Amino acid sequence: MLQPTETEKTELVSAIFGQALAQHANTSKFKSYFRHYVSVVCPASSGDAVIELDTSLLRSHGDVIKYVQFLTKDPALTLDAFVAANASQKSIAVSVREKQHISRVIVEVWFAIDCMAQDYYSPTRQGPSLQQIKWEGNTSFLAFIESSFKAAASQDGHHWPLSKTQIKSLKGWKLVKRYGIKIRGTNNLLEHLDFDTNTMTLKVFHQVSFLRAHLTKTKEQPLDLSFEESIKQGSLPPRLLLETLLTFHDVLFPVASIREKKSRSLLKTLIAKHDFDGEAEWIEFVRATTEDITAFRYWGHRLAALHEIIKRPPPANAMVAWFERHTSERNALTVAIVGLFLSVLFGLLSFIVGLLQLILAWVAYKYPTAS
Rank of each mutant, 00 (worst) to 15 (best):
T334P: 03
A316R: 06
E308R: 10
P315E: 02
H326T: 11
H307Y: 12
A304Q: 14
A304M: 06
V338P: 00
M319Y: 09
R325A: 10
I337L: 12
P313H: 06
A321Y: 05
S328V: 04
R312L: 14
R312Q: 15
I337P: 06
N317T: 02
E329N: 02
L306N: 00
A305M: 04
P315K: 07
A318P: 09
K311R: 12
A316E: 12
V335T: 08
E324C: 01
I310P: 05
A318F: 01
T327A: 00
T334L: 08
T334H: 00
M319R: 12
V335F: 12
V338M: 10
I309W: 05
R312K: 15
I310G: 10
T327Y: 00
T327F: 01
A321F: 02
A305G: 10
N331L: 06
P313Q: 08
L306D: 06
W322Y: 15
R312N: 15
A332Y: 08
E324Y: 11
P315D: 10
R325I: 07
S328E: 05
I310V: 11
F341T: 08
M319I: 14
K311C: 14
R330N: 13
A318Y: 06
R325Q: 13
I310W: 03
P314A: 02
E308A: 13
I337N: 06
E329K: 02
E308V: 04
V320I: 14
N331M: 08
V338W: 00
E329C: 04
A321C: 02
S328G: 13
R312S: 15
L340G: 05
F341E: 14
H307N: 11
L333Y: 12
T334K: 09
A305P: 02
M319V: 15
F323P: 11
V335P: 00
A336E: 03
M319W: 03
E324D: 11
V335R: 06
E329L: 06
L340M: 07
L333N: 14
I309D: 01
A332W: 08
R330H: 09
V338C: 07
E308M: 07
T334N: 05
L333C: 07
N317H: 05
I337G: 00
L306S: 08
I309S: 08
H326Y: 04
R330V: 12
A305R: 05
S328A: 01
K311S: 10
N331P: 03
V335G: 06
P313K: 07
N331I: 10
A316H: 08
V338K: 03
I310S: 11
N331V: 04
R312M: 14
H326M: 03
V320N: 14
A336L: 10
P314I: 15
T327R: 07
A332K: 01
R330Q: 10
E308D: 15
G339Q: 04
G339S: 05
R325L: 05
I310H: 11
F341R: 09
I309M: 10
A318V: 12
A336Y: 00
E308W: 04
K311I: 09
V335E: 12
F323T: 14
A336Q: 07
A332P: 03
E329M: 02
V335Q: 12
V335K: 07
N331K: 13
M319H: 11
L333T: 15
V320A: 15
L306K: 01
E324G: 04
A332F: 02
G339F: 00
L340V: 09
P315I: 01
T334F: 02
A336N: 02
L333F: 03
